[in-house]
């Protein structure tokens, strides 16, 4: 599964990761899977303000994912 990161998550994990993930799964289990593989980023990934996005739509942690989904994780945002 292709996973893309933005903000400080991209700085920690790289912009893109290709992960072997058992599907179907949920956004929450994908988050856990990435955190296990990259413990240095676990705390940042588990931040409740980190949002997931599939097909340019923000999705909740229980959103179901298939192998063909591309998931984006957005670090906490700040403008102004």
């Amino acid at each position: 599964m292709k996973v893309t990161f933005y903000g400080k998550l991209a700085a920690m994990l790289g912009t893109e990761l290709e992960l072997a993930v058992e599907t179907p799964c949920t956004v929450a289990s994908l988050r856990t899977r990435i955190a296990e593989a990259h413990p240095e980023a676990a705390k940042s990934l588990e931040d409740r303000r980190v949002r997931a996005c599939v097909g340019s739509t923000l999705v909740a942690d229980d959103h179901p994912l298939t192998a063909s989904d591309e998931v984006e994780f957005l670090a906490p945002v700040s403008g102004g």
Binding site: G7, K8, A11, R49, A75, V77, S78, G79, G80
Partner: peptide, 22 residues
């Protein structure tokens, strides 16, 4: 905008790089 605009902001300066969150 400070809390919800989808932008990721980091400071760059003499002390290095720091991500800014609300």
């Amino acid at each position: 905008l400070k809390t919800e605009a989808v932008l990721w902001k980091r400071e760059e300066g003499a002390a290095g790089t720091k991500w800014i969150e609300p």
